[in-house]
Write a protein that binds this DNA or RNA. Structure first.
Length: 586
RNA sequence: GCCCCCGUAGCUCAGCGGAUAGAGCACCGGCCUCCGGAGCCGGUUGCGCAGGUUCGAGUCCUGCCGGGGGCGCCA
């Protein structure tokens, strides 16, 4: 079912075509009508006529019978459009009747590979991994919901020179102790200890270097120990993912080691294509358009002078493999903004090599840093990076404290209280991350994100829970005057949008599809956040002015229950697409 | 030095080339015996600077200022 904006746009397009084929109607939401079409102004200039004249002709030509009540020219040549209430009612009704809330699947699904999270083996997950994980996960959920074929990829750092020292450290402390350290999640301790030995002990350093060679050459015992490190780290990652509530599973892991066997061929083929240049002993590709500090061409180093492969080689192998073997038609890299240049160079080289054909999209879904309230990179008091688990645990603790403040700890039973605190805390963290435009750095502020007031996760969850409470009242009604049949909410009545607040809510509901469309189109969950917040506040206004259970007559009550129910469904589904839970009580 | 991102109200953020630049928080004044105050009404303050393109610029272009990041063998 096409959404309202699309329908109106099509009709306007037809009208504009009669004046000048292909002219853009420039349809926009308006604060003085439901929509406004601004296209007449630009078109008038091209036709050498006055904007009002052109706008008048558009109004005369456009067919919006049954869709708009008023179509009129205003100001210098804007066409203001006011939807007919009956039309809104019908569309809302159709939405309410539809299991998918009138959200169409895409006609041509893409196979989208989404690369996100990518923690490093034997290293702590920290706030830096938060945004990638949360944003990537939400994008996956939305893409899946629209019917795309999504392949999640967790490109963990499980290969390379650090593993020499990590494995040697493993042999030093003994496997049993090492496994214990890794399993209690003291990854940073393990890594730092290895690092310390490496920096201070030349013998250890030499052993580490030798160990890297053994690892690269496939020595079975070395590989076995490597596997120990990787497996226990993955177990730890899974714990974090479980706390965070994301879709990633072990099946999604495609570590750097996975691409290792493909690296030689990457270099070989680049060479065969004549793209490889040897520079200072390193084998590089110089994609056009990239320069260094002296204005000289910037190399993408695929093979280092010591013969080892650079990470560019892995990234190229990955792109190639995803396209060739996985059949990706779109690749999304949810990676921090600082890596923009590196990724652009990889993409450019992959295109040069013909590994990314026309029609296959490769995109860097970049994001800014997480800042503390002091506007500096978020760090602990001691100055180290914040462990992700600590941050998540604190979120849940703080949410529980907020619940206690509100006295909910006496209303909800222990188990439910715990579940709600988790949903609230994690939801608050996710929402504060997702609701800011990706590219901006954003300020991490506990007070703000956990507030029930303003543009926060808890606000949305609370809005949803309160709507649910209306329906609990419906079911529990014992008072004869208050009693409403439970089927009232879902039986087939007309939706009536008589009050302005009802009409506004109807319009807001109908904006769901285009909000999802914008969010996916721009790969920005923040668009969906903004929509859901607007829907929640619009519902609040409606709820304030339009009694639901105490509506004046049965038809109105049914209609309003239907509106409430549909709002709750959109909120629930929308939060779900952001990776947030929507408890029915809190 | 070069490249990228960011600069909108006291604070956190929206603004897809179009009408008087919007929210939330905070602050001030009033209101509500309301289905769980996610309350309601009103008020105060803003596009870093300077040019340019355009009928029209917060939005596009150029330069500058300020903040962050990146710039060949770490990933």
């Amino acid at each position: 079912m096409p959404d309202v904006a699309t329908i109106v746009a099509e009709r306007l397009q037809a009208a504009f075509d009669t004046l000048s084929p292909g002219a853009d109607p420039v349809l926009r939401p308006s604060d003085r009508a439901d929509f406004q079409a601004n296209g007449a102004l630009a078109l008038a200039k091209r036709l050498g006529r006055t904007p009002r004249e052109v706008a008048d002709e558009v109004v005369a030509a456009v067919d919006l019978v049954g869709i708009c009540d008023r179509v009129e020219v205003s100001g210098p040549g804007f066409v203001n459009l006011v939807l007919s209430v009956r039309f809104i009612e019908d569309r809302v009704r159709a939405m309410a009747d539809d299991a998918r809330l009138a959200l169409d699947r895409v006609p041509v699904p893409q196979r989208v590979v989404v690369t996100y999270s990518h923690p490093n083996v034997a290293k702590e997950m920290h706030v830096g991994h938060l945004r990638s994980t949360v944003i990537g996960d939400s994008l996956c959920r939305m893409l899946v919901h629209l019917g795309h074929d999504v392949v999640r990829e967790n490109h963990i750092g499980d290969w390379g020179t650090p593993f020499g020292m990590l494995i040697e450290h493993l042999t030093d402390v003994g496997e049993e102790k090492a496994i214990h350290e890794l399993s209690v999640g003291d990854l940073s301790g393990f890594y730092q200890a290895a690092r310390a030995s490496f920096d201070s002990d030349d013998t250890f350093k030499e052993r580490s270097r030798h160990r890297v060679v053994l690892l690269q050459s496939g020595d079975p015992e070395t590989l076995r120990m490597w596997r120990v490190l990787v497996d226990h780290s993955i177990t730890y990652f899974d714990e974090v993912y479980a706390k965070l509530g994301v879709l990633l599973t072990d099946d999604d892991i495609r570590g750097e080691s996975f691409y290792n066997p493909l690296l030689a061929k990457v270099v070989e083929d680049l060479d065969a294509l004549g793209l490889l240049v040897e520079d200072d002993g390193a084998r590089c590709v110089f994609p056009p358009g990239f320069t260094n500090r002296h204005g000289d061409p910037l190399p993408l180093i695929v093979q280092k002078s010591d013969g080892g492969f650079g990470y560019a080689a892995t990234d190229l192998a990955c792109i190639r493999d995803r396209v060739d073997r996985v059949g990706a038609t779109q690749l999304l890299y949810v990676v921090g903004a600082p890596q923009a240049q590196h990724l652009q160079m990889c993409f450019a080289v992959a295109r040069m090599a013909g590994w990314v054909p026309e029609g296959v999209g490769v995109e860097h879904v970049a994001f800014g840093s997480v800042l503390g309230t002091d506007h500096r990179m978020l760090r602990t008091r001691a100055g180290s990076s914040v462990r992700l688990v600590d941050l998540l645990d604190e979120a849940v603790e703080r949410a529980a404290a907020v619940m206690a403040e509100r006295g909910r700890d006496v209303t909800l039973l222990g188990g439910e209280l715990t579940r709600v605190a988790r949903a609230l805390g994690i939801g608050a963290v996710k929402y504060s991350d997702l609701s800011t435009d990706r590219l901006r750095d954003y300020v991490f502020d506990w007070e703000r994100m956990l507030s029930f007031e303003g543009d926060t996760g808890p606000y949305l969850q609370y809005a949803h829970a309160r709507i649910c409470s209306i329906f609990r009242r419906v079911e529990d009604a014992t008072d004869a005057t208050d009693a409403i049949d439970a089927t009232d909410a879902t039986d087939a009545t007309r939706i009536a949008l008589a009050a302005p607040q009802e009409r506004a809510l109807g319009i807001a509901l109908l904006g769901y599809a285009s909000a999802i469309g914008a969010s996916v189109g721009e790969l920005s969950p923040s668009k969906l956040c903004a929509y859901l917040y607007d829907l929640a506040t619009t519902f609040t206004t409606f709820y304030e002015h339009c009694p639901v259970l105490r509506a004046p007559d049965l038809e109105t009550r049914k209609s309003r229950l239907r509106l409430a129910e549909t709002t709750a469904r959109v909120l629930r589904e929308g939060m779900g697409l952001l990776g947030m839970e929507a408890p029915e009580r809190m």
